[in-house]
Amino acid sequence: MNKIILLIEDNPYDEELTLMALDKNNILNEVVVARDGEEALDFLFGSGPGSAADRKLLPTIILLDLKLPKVSGLDVLRKIRAESQTQSLPVVILTSSQEDKDLLESYSLGCNSYVRKPVDFAMFVEAARQLGLYWLLLNECPPDPN
């Protein structure tokens, strides 16, 4: 199984809960976690050990939080859409905010989906199940440019 998930999330509790929610749904794909926008960009566009270029492997799906230290989620999305090797990667915004402004901006920058993290954990698990089912199984991704 070489479909990897890139989770871009700065809150350690949210990271743990997301991993737990994926695990509960038997989504056993490898999850690469970036703790801020800069780390995410390093993974996607850098050439250091463990980076996508180093592993010759791009994530199948990117779960992106909006409020991140250093480089914001929207800026990460902008960069992903600007570079040819990542421009068609599916990006799901996974955030707490449901401000209209964030929704509008995310969609206009080309996110594929926008999910608000529910407070209730059971609902969170359900959201993770549906996301995994759709993006990892049902959805056909564009062919790898490499």
């Binding site: 809150n11 509790y13 809960l17 707490s96 954990f121």
Partner: peptide
Amino acid sequence: SHDLRAPLRAISGFA
């Protein structure tokens, strides 16, 4: 909207 909900999610999730 963003910051107050995150700890709540942790409370609910870890419970």
